[in-house]
């Protein structure tokens, strides 16, 4: 199969993820969309790796997975504590940092 198709898929996934981050209010969904974008990147990295016959991209994809796992741990913890204090998972409710 033509590796370029994987790139199209990666772009599609990334776009969906980005749109989700910008549109959705629920923090969990936003979080998942971020993960989607990360995985789209991973897919693109792997596809490029395959196209150029170079393993560097695949190694970076592993790194990304590790970072994403760590981020999930911290991110979910923040979301849970936010939900506990505000009884809402909406990102728009947590707008305390404005002037």
């Amino acid at each position: 199969m033509n590796p370029v198709n994987y790139l199209y898929l990666a772009a599609l996934l990334f776009t969906i993820g980005a749109a989700g981050v910008l549109i959705r209010r629920n923090a969990i969904v936003v979080f998942m969309c971020v993960e989607l974008m990360l995985n789209a990147c991973n897919l693109a990295l792997v596809a490029f790796s395959r196209m150029h016959g170079n393993l560097d991209g695949q190694i970076i994809a592993f790194f990304t997975m590790v970072v994403a796992a760590a981020e999930v741990v911290v991110g979910l913890a923040i979301i849970v504590s936010l939900f506990r204090s505000r009884h809402s998972a909406s990102v728009d409710d947590a707008s305390l940092m404005k002037l």
Partner: peptide, 17 residues
């Protein structure tokens, strides 16, 4: 410029994108 800093995470995300 101050108005840009509204505290909404999603608007920050838009500017980042």
């Amino acid at each position: 410029l101050r108005r840009l800093q509204n505290g909404f995470a999603r608007s920050y995300a838009v500017s980042m994108f």
